[in-house]
């Protein structure tokens, strides 16, 4: 039981970290800071516009796979895998 609580806390910590990134790339770079980032240009893309229409989506994909990978390790470390 104690073991399970520690597992759950580790899961929440990981989740919160990833959700901060999730928020930063979409709501942060794509919406709130868009005008600021638009001063930077990569190729033909204004950076803020790129985050809103391309970058945030790529980061979302990476976030899910990072979560899946790290959770698989947590499952093993805590001996709770299926």
């Amino acid at each position: 039981m104690k073991n399970n609580n520690a597992y759950w806390r580790a899961n929440i910590r990981l989740m919160v970290k990833l959700l901060i990134v999730w928020f930063l790339v979409s709501f942060g770079c794509g919406i709130l800071l868009v005008d600021l980032l638009n001063h930077v240009q990569i190729g033909g893309y204004k950076l803020g516009f790129w985050f809103a229409q391309q970058g945030s989506i790529y980061v979302f994909v990476v976030l899910i796979f990072v979560y899946a990978k790290k959770m698989a390790r947590l499952d093993r470390d805590f001996g709770v895998e299926e």
Binding site: L18, S26, A52, I57, F60, I64
Partner: peptide
């Protein structure tokens, strides 16, 4: 963003 971010 809305229709992809939801999957996270």
């Amino acid at each position: 963003m809305g229709w992809t971010g939801g999957f996270v």
